[in-house]
Simulated scan of single mutants.
Amino acid sequence: MLYGRANANGRRVAVYVPEELVPEVQRGLDNGRALQELLQQAAPRYVKALKRERTEAAKSKKSRAV
């Protein structure tokens, strides 16, 4: 059985996984967890880059106004 939560309402759901599909489903879950970890690491870096870009654009605009 594969247990999880439905996104929309948070209800717990269960799905039967046939024995022959277990390795493939496990590999997909492992890949999803690895992807989630990478996204959690990338998000703060992306926000910092956006802030830095915005700051540099503001500085550039001020220097052109002078």
Rank of each mutant, 00 (worst) to 15 (best):
E20Y: 11
L39C: 07
A65P: 07
V47M: 14
R33G: 04
V17K: 01
R11C: 05
N9E: 03
A58S: 13
A14I: 02
V15R: 13
P44F: 00
A57F: 08
L50I: 05
L21G: 09
Y16Q: 14
A42C: 08
P18I: 05
D30P: 05
E37N: 12
G10D: 06
Q41L: 06
K48F: 11
R12A: 07
R33C: 04
Y46A: 05
L38R: 15
L29S: 02
S60F: 00
A65M: 09
G32F: 04
S63T: 05
S60A: 14
A43V: 07
T55P: 08
L2R: 04
R27M: 07
A49Y: 13
R5E: 01
E20N: 13
G10T: 00
E37F: 10
V66H: 10
Q26S: 05
A58L: 09
A42V: 02
Q26G: 08
V47C: 09
L21Y: 10
V25H: 05
E53F: 08
R45G: 10
G32K: 04
K51V: 15
L35F: 09
Y16H: 15
G10R: 00
K51I: 15
E24V: 03
L2N: 00
A8V: 00
L2T: 02
P23S: 02
K51M: 15
A34K: 10
A42Y: 04
V22P: 02
D30N: 03
L2G: 02
G10Q: 00
G32E: 09
Y16K: 11
M1I: 09
L21C: 14
A34E: 05
L50T: 07
V13D: 03
K62E: 14
R45C: 04
Q26W: 04
R33T: 04
V25R: 07
L38K: 15
